[in-house]
Design a protein around this nucleic acid. Structure first.
Length: 1041
RNA sequence: GGGCGAUUAGCUCAGUUGGCUAGAGUGCCAGCAUGACACGCUGGAGGUCACAGGUUCGAGCCCUGUAUCGCCCACCA
């Protein structure tokens, strides 16, 4: 550790030193037995798919500010870090990588081999993510680092699944799922993104079997007609009666299908439909019903008991191998991808004179959030968690704090849950609420290899009892019954829809039975099951199942550990709004169901960082910024400060992205192009602004995968000039600290004597106290921008611009330097504490140096500031130092100091107008009423130094000196004598006169309005009168014509 | 289709229950290498608060409507 602060601020070495100090003291670690009020945050575990981006940096900076703040407050603060295995996302990334590098597909490997590859990827990125978080200064308790698939978390998942299974909240159902044909897995509803697509409306004719004509159906997906099992018409449609009981012949496959009547069908306008309904304008009144490939049709099929015919293979090609037998003439589409089949089918209709019309149509189609291909509604067997149950969604609704609940709340026991969960900003409570009011059961199985294997063994299809000798079968049944009674297994049967069916063990045939095994090491049970042909379900659980347990599993659940008792519920969840439904919901339901506690008391939803065009930052657009690049170019503290400063109350914040020219190191705005999806993206190849012959690759070029940077054409890193704000601030802090420290060091040590404090001393201490109070206040509502602003204004504007400048003469005067140094040391100490949660590295290192120079500091607790707010308690480390108490305020000083500031401002203004050289002192005379005269005289030195003047005279009856320029401020008259022939505008008083007259007119207008004087609050009216009087007095004094 | 948010200085944003002549940072202009800092200091210019109505003594803020942008939710042929 260097004993002096380096001449220029070097973020890298500062970061390194601070990290070492914290590490040596194990400063981030907490134990449940530690003193203090419990305060805990569980990190939203980043996916191990990729390195962290700026959004993560934002999210984690805010959490770290909270944790550091509460640690300083004396709370027992613990931040639990970890990562998420992110099933589908990670597997997809690795599959792509393996295909690109080895030319092999997942299916070319054994399951264990491929999982090992993903595991290797996970290890690599988990390490990288951890390194990034550490570099950002995140004070996570690294001894408690978790991963959603490590052993303790696997145990929690297993326990949770078993309990839900036993409680009848998990069931097997054949349902239409969102099928991703590329990754070949089911997706949850919220993993599907709607995208606008240009398509067509095809009008297809289906002949009636009796030869009396045809009906025309309209569809955007003509290929699904192969699986049609009915045509529906609205019973109110006037044509319905004539068609009742008739059937149509389905072209191509020659399947006879009924015409059914269902109110769901939209009628065209001419048959009674709503003419304003855009759908009515496209509709023919006849709806083809394809239960296997459309969610609505599936419902119609249920209502009319229609067969369900699946025509697709899992890869979304047309196939007769998955439940479709009557293929008729459809050989020509077999094996075709559905999109191509769509055209082939239309061509067939055209050739056979059955195509009536094609209309262009733009509509939204579900796409996989992972592979971005169109989702196929696909019929398959999946596991569901019955979140529609009152025990789940109902509990989540009851968890909402009463005053954030819209409408009448179902009576519940929110009062046992600390008054409920609060959202910040409160509007997000409604997102949460309406999600649970409209929730549907959650499909929790995924056809992946990377994830928690579903701990269910399927007994062989059919009735086990029919396959075994009776005695043997009876023995199994006895065993199963005993194991179930002992809690070693739970049994269920497949339910067609919507509910779990418990197994009646007395029904000795055991049809379609599933056994969930409680303990993964219970070989006796597993071996016995497998001996009879039972096999473990090959699927894994949805990632969000393990994430949903995160607040519990990170603290050792299902064991009721001291950690769990201390830190659950956690204090706050910090996250972005996109996962309120995906994640917050599930944590709430699980935490309540398993432990009857909230997962967290507060939910803070922060803004989303977009690029300069209002687009989400994403890898594929290449507009994402790597926090490590910012740390390298600006420093970690600078990044944190800027991010905190951006954390406003709104939904989105914009971060215009610049590029760093690798040739010159300079920053420039990239050239943009519009990509095929309409996004503004940086042109793949950029020119150096200095030398257009030098080219570079933008990160969009890199992300598009086509362009690889080379030595001749290097990569231009993303950055943003927004971080200059933080960098400048840190630089200012560093230099101000250097100055203050060197002054303190050379000042004589004296016992603090408050009677010797100047106006500036009292003022800066009072301002400090205000800033602490404001920070405390504003942090309760998670307004990090206001915290950053308050700290910035206090430190730069008040402390550096005014206090340090005002105090310079005193520091040069040995008789006063000792006392001033006391105040300087105390205020610097306080400022470091105040700033530490936002910019921990730089403050820790400066604090270290301050401790060396002034091991004891603090202010006497009496007179005008009986409580300075600046603690005398010290600690070796700032991270462990107490947060300042709010001291009292020096009202008088806060009132007088601005007057002096204003006088100084006016003099500076006049000097500038008169073009007086900066170093040249000028003579100043001030005419003021007795009280201001006293104040100004007392602060003569400050005025002289800060305005570079000789304050010749201050007097109530001062007469204007010849040749002086007259100006006015704070109710006083200022005469500036340039001492040489003045250059520029010498008639400043006239300018001021114009301003004053305009103001006086406004005020007079307001007062002449009777309604105003009668209705406005009296203090405002009085204030207006006072202002007018003051303006008029000044006008009078200046002799404004 | 429903809901939410945004629209304030060239740019990025503050503006807390309506009440000074609407603020900051950055950029711009002018001056300054002043013994902490040029990542700095001093001063300055720059805004019909998206638009149209309304409520009020008083509207950037509240109400109604319009426009543009963004996000979330929704099984819309």
């Amino acid at each position: 550790m260097p004993t002096e602060l380096a001449k220029t601020f070097d973020p890298a070495s500062t970061q390194e030193q601070a990290l070492r100090l914290w590490d040596e003291h194990n400063a981030f670690h907490a134990e449940p037995t530690d003193p203090g009020k419990p305060y805990s945050i569980v990190i939203p575990p980043p996916n191990v798919t990729a390195a962290l981006h700026l959004g993560h940096a934002f999210n984690n900076t805010l959490q770290d500010i909270l944790v550091r703040y509460h640690r300083m407050l004396g709370d027992n603060a613990c931040w639990l870090p970890g990562t998420d295995h992110a099933g589908i996302a990670t597997q997809t990334v690795v599959e792509k990588r393996v295909l690109a590098e080895e030319g092999k597909r997942r299916t070319d490997f054994k399951r264990e081999e491929f999982v090992a590859k993903i595991q290797a990827w996970k290890d690599q990125y988990e390490a990288r993510i951890t390194a990034q978080l550490k570099a950002m200064g995140c004070s996570c308790d690294w001894q408690r680092q978790a991963f959603t698939m490590d052993a303790p978390r696997a145990k929690a998942v297993r326990e949770a699944f078993f309990r839900l299974f036993k409680d009848g909240l998990i069931y097997r159902g054949k349902r239409l799922v969102n099928w991703d044909p590329v990754t070949q897995t089911a997706l949850a509803d919220d993993e599907v993104e709607m995208e606008e697509v240009d398509g067509h409306f095809y009008y297809l004719r289906y002949p009636l079997t009796d030869g009396s004509g045809h009906v025309t159906v309209a569809t955007t997906r003509s290929e699904t007609m192969l699986g049609d099992t009915a045509v529906a018409i609205n019973p109110k449609d006037p044509r319905a009666a004539a068609l009742r009981g008739k059937r149509v012949i389905l072209p191509i496959v020659n399947r006879e299908i009924p015409i059914v009547e269902d109110e769901y069908v939209v009628m065209p306008a001419q048959y009674g439909g709503d003419p304003d309904d855009p759908k009515a304008q496209l509709a023919t009144g006849f709806l083809k019903v394809t239960p296997a490939h459309d969610p609505n049709d599936y419902e119609i099929g249920r209502r009319h008991n229609l067969p369900v015919i699946n025509i697709l293979a899992p890869d979304a090609t047309i196939s007769d191998k998955h439940g479709w037998t009557d293929i008729g003439e459809a050989h020509f589409v077999l094996g075709q991808p559905s999109e191509h089949a769509r055209k082939l089918v239309v061509d067939w209709f055209k050739r056979n004179g059955l195509l009536e019309e094609i209309k262009p149509y733009r509509h939204s189609v579900g796409h996989s959030y992972r592979s971005h291909v169109a989702i196929e509604p696909y019929l398959s067997d999946q596991w569901y968690c019955q979140v529609t149950e009152p025990r789940m969604a109902g509990a989540a609704l009851r968890a909402i704090a009463d005053d954030q609940f819209e409408g009448r709340k179902i009576p519940g026991k929110a009062d046992t849950w600390d008054g409920g969960m609060r959202f910040f900003p409160s509007r997000y409570a409604r997102t949460f609420q309406s999600w649970h009011e409209n929730i549907r059961d959650w499909c929790i199985s995924r056809q992946l290899w990377w994830g928690h294997r579903i701990p269910v063994w399927r007994l062989p299809e059919g009735r086990l009892g029919e396959r075994l000798p009776l005695a043997q079968f009876e023995a199994i049944v006895e065993k199963l019954a005993q194991w179930q009674a002992d809690g070693r297994i739970a049994l269920t049967q497949r339910a067609e829809r919507d509910q779990a069916r418990s197994v009646d063990i007395a029904d000795r045939s055991l049809p379609y039975t599933f056994a969930c095994v409680h303990d993964p090491n219970d070989r006796e049970v597993i071996d016995e099951l497998e001996r009879h042909g039972a096999a473990q379900d090959p699927d894994v659980l949805d990632t969000w199942f393990s994430s949903g347990l995160w607040p519990l599993s990170t603290l050792g659940w299902p064991e009721e550990t001291p950690e769990l008792r201390t830190w659950n519920p956690s204090s706050v969840l910090c996250t972005s709004r996109e996962i309120i439904t995906l994640w917050v919901s599930r944590m709430t339901m699980f935490n309540i169901h398993f432990r009857n506690t909230l997962p967290f008391r507060d939910v803070f939803i922060h803004a989303m960082i977009q690029d300069g065009h209002g687009q989400k930052m994403s890898k594929s657009l290449g507009n994402g910024v790597d926090p490590m690049d910012i740390i390298a170019s600006h420093g970690a503290d600078a990044m944190r400060f800027t991010l905190a400063h951006m954390a406003t109350n709104t939904q989105d914040v914009r971060m215009p992205v610049d590029l760093v020219d690798p040739w010159t190191g300079e920053t420039f705005a990239p050239k943009y192009v519009t990509d095929s999806a309409g996004y503004m993206v940086a042109a793949p190849i950029q020119e150096s602004p200095k030398d257009p012959s030098k080219k570079m690759v933008s990160s969009y070029g890199l992300a598009s995968g086509k362009i690889k940077p080379t030595a001749d054409m290097p990569l231009a890193k993303n950055t943003s000039s927004k971080f200059d704000l933080g960098r400048n601030f840190c630089n200012k802090l560093w230099n101000a600290a250097r100055f203050v420290l060197s002054n303190i060091e050379s000042a004589p040590a004296e016992a603090p004597d408050e009677s010797k404090w100047s106006l500036a001393d009292r003022w800066i201490i009072s301002r400090f106290n205000r800033t602490v109070a404001e920070t405390d206040d504003v942090l309760k509502n998670y307004r990090f921008d206001q915290v950053a602003r308050a700290a910035y204004d206090f430190f730069w504007r008040d402390f550096c611009d005014w206090y340090v400048e005002a105090v310079k003469p005193a520091m040069r005067d040995p008789s006063r330097a000792g006392q001033t140094a006391n105040v300087l040391a105390a205020v610097l100490d306080g400022a470091l504490r105040l700033l530490h949660p936002i910019i921990p590295f730089i403050t820790e290192i400066i604090y270290h140096r301050l401790n060396e120079i002034r091991p004891t500091r603090g202010l006497p607790n009496r007179l005008e500031c009986p409580h300075s707010g600046i603690s005398t308690q010290h600690s070796g480390l700032l991270i462990k130092a107490p947060w300042p108490n709010v001291g009292s305020f020096a009202e008088a000083a806060e009132h007088i100091f601005p007057n002096v500031q204003e006088v100084i401002g006016v003099i500076r203004n006049v000097r500038n107008e008169l073009k007086v050289p900066p170093k040249q002192k000028v003579d100043v005379y001030i005419a003021a009423p007795p009280e201001p005269t006293r104040q100004l005289t007392e602060n003569r030195e400050m005025i002289e130094v800060l305005a570079t003047v000789n304050l010749k005279d201050v007097h109530p009856d001062l007469t204007a000196p010849a040749g002086a320029v007259r100006a006015a401020a704070a109710g006083v008259e200022v005469f500036v004598h340039p001492g040489q022939p003045a250059v520029g505008d010498t008639n400043l008083a006239e300018k001021r006169c114009a301003e004053l007259k305009k103001l006086a007119d406004t005020l007079r207008g307001r007062l002449s309005n009777d309604a105003y004087t009668k209705k406005a609050p009296p203090h405002l009216v009085q204030q207006t009168r006072d202002q007018l009087a003051q303006a008029e007095a000044e006008i009078d004094k200046l002799g404004c014509g």
